[in-house]
Design a protein around this nucleic acid. Structure first.
Lengths: 372, 372
DNA sequence: CTGAAAGCGCTTACAG
DNA sequence: CTGAAAGCGCTTACAG
């Protein structure tokens, strides 16, 4: 006999249900898990009794029995490191990813574990997830190799550039997004569009640069790619923008690839009295509250981070269940055209964002005009 | 015999260790868990053998046996809801909280589960955490009652105003923070300081307002509390600031209680050509990248969110282990004095942030001057 | 100081 | 169509 039971709070077990129904635990288990061996009538009766008794299967017992943990680990870049070094390329993006992943996983009976910055297999064993959703893999990301070798499947948000052909990622259509944005800015009159690109091997950076160069070549326009460090996002994009603006042939359009780059660019323009959009069109490759709330609001690509997270979780769960994986999942993005790329009167520029995603504002707030 | 084993990958179990050491599993368990019944020599030998064999205890088996899950749920306001409605009072704050919690929990062998927006006990049962860290409880927050009734202990970040005397929270010293900030602004010359306060029952709002009024009364200064809705953070703080600035007696200082309020205030000032800090001192009650990177950078209270999260997790784990809880945990905050409240030459205003928490910039970036 | 055994709640191969 | 039994890996009360 075991004096200490974990039936704390008088948990109703499968055994209790079996006794109440006058059947065996096997039958209860089958009835509850829709194994097709029972008469529909028996099944219904057992399910009713289980409900009446307030039976809830123990998730940990199930997980234990099945040799899994029911857990998906979410790895965000730079989260969980020393708190004082929390520096992400876009808080908005990752927060939405986290929310979307938590939601999608919960629907399927999984929990999302927030992974602190860990590196060793040892530490990963302590976390012990069934699978991992990894944001922004580096090129040939070693974490993916390590985890897969441990038997822990990984699905990434954004692809690993050094894994061509891998179906295990969700992503936006980075090349098309940049093309759409360039087309829009070109149409709005820009002829020298610079790209503030991140010094990183992330796929969205490489894809964006590649698409940008191709687009410029097609139109015979000069490619102006300015690599910006990841170390000091705002400061370096500020500096890069200053260099552009103070150069011999300043651009008439700037695409800042990341949220914080747009902040640096905005600052540089403001300092010089360069008006947006009158003197320069500004757009950003990743939507954010900053872009939405800036004055004027900045045209941005909404990558639908929550949708990407949902798609990544779905792919991962398919891998876990051994199903055919129909990846990669290319999630449609949405270009929000805002004041920063629209010259002349355009009272309600943000109407493209009638999807509820934009900030709820009334028109009076949607179009803050420049100071008198 | 069970054809399907969960010893996938040939897991080394406690049984294997026992066999290799020539002892019983009981002895192995005791040796590994430092139960004081073994000879030190035996213990060391078993631990060595376990290491050599690459034994790792199964966390889910342990959890199962002990009737727990090894999981702490983190509840952030408004995360996990419909992705399109992700609107938090401060992304920076909660992202740091999440990172800090994940880290602190991991150290103690717990995992942090990101909780989607759920409401019913039914849903909580599916998550099944051992305990919950709840951010920003409302007054008499019903989630706390529900969870505690379910036997799931809760520790909050910020206190529940309607639970006086509860030791189960971590928080900054909200009243003292506001006083410090007011003292600083007063010293910098402000005599009519307005407070943009949130329309909410959160403790930090109530404490801040109360401290503000007391401080004003002590100095015979007029209290200017402007309640701002939580619904449309930026837009409403913009409007509130406009009303203040356009009124008969405009303030000479503004404290925006939340990150996004500072964004609205900044916009309102910019539109009117009101210069910060020359015409108006501006400060914000919660530090953020926006505050750090604004032009000029905005004086802000750094609430040390990761430290608060760590403190909350520690309190929760003490509750779980039945230890005496020495809560509440009042975590020291830090006032970062920046350009928005410093008139005249102050080349390196942000030196108070020499703790590595501020953005790594060199001096040239630290003090962006207004445009020529 | 150490071991044999029970049992946490569940699922599954197998026998009827 | 249903049941008896084994067993996932671990911890613990109890007996020696």
């Amino acid at each position: 006999m075991n004096g200490v039971s974990n039936a704390i709070g008088g948990r109703v077990t499968i055994r209790d249900v079996a006794a109440a129904a006058g059947v065996s635990v096997t039958t209860v288990s089958d009835a509850l898990n829709d194994k097709g061996k029972l008469r529909a009538e028996t099944r219904a009766r057992i399910q009713r009794i289980a409900r009446e008794l307030g039976y809830r299967p123990s998730r940990v017992a199930q997980a234990f029995r099945q040799g899994r943990t029911g857990t998906i680990a979410l790895v965000l870049p730079n989260v969980g490191g020393p708190a004082d070094e929390l520096e992400m390329i876009s808080l908005d993006f990752y927060m939405s990813v986290a929310a979307g992943a938590a939601r999608a996983a919960f629907r399927e009976g999984y929990a999302v574990t927030l992974t602190p910055r860990i590196s060793t297999a040892e530490e990963w064993h302590l976390i012990g997830p069934d699978g991992v959703v990894l944001c922004d893999p580096l090129s040939a990301d070693s974490r993916i190799d390590m985890l897969e070798e441990m038997g822990i499947p990984v699905v990434s948000i954004e692809r690993d550039p050094a894994r061509p052909g891998s179906p295990y990622y969700a992503s936006g259509d980075n090349a098309q997004n940049i093309r759409d944005l360039l087309d829009h800015m070109h149409q709005a009159g820009a002829r020298r569009i610079a790209l503030l690109s991140a010094e990183a091997t992330w796929a969205w950076v490489l894809d964006g640069e590649h698409a940008y160069r191709a687009w410029c070549a097609e139109r015979g326009l000069p490619p102006l790619v300015v690599p910006v460090s990841l170390d000091r996002l705002e400061a370096d994009s500020y500096r890069a923008t200053c260099a552009l603006l103070d150069g011999d042939e300043p651009p008439d359009g700037i695409i800042a690839s990341a949220e914080q780059y747009s902040e640096g660019s905005t600052r540089a323009c403001r300092e010089r009295g360069i008006r947006i959009p009158d003197d320069l069109l500004l757009a950003v490759g990743m939507d954010s509250r900053f872009a939405q709330q800036c004055d004027p609001p900045i045209t941005a690509i909404d990558l639908r981070p929550a949708d990407q997270a949902t798609a990544a979780v779905d792919l991962l769960l398919k891998r876990l269940s051994g199903e055919q994986v129909d990846g990669p999942a290319i999630v449609p993005s949405k270009l929000h055209i805002r004041g920063s790329t629209q010259r002349g009167p355009a009272p309600f520029s943000d109407t493209a964002t009638d999807d509820g995603h934009s900030r709820r504002r009334d028109p009076a707030d949607a179009w803050p005009m420049t100071p008198p």
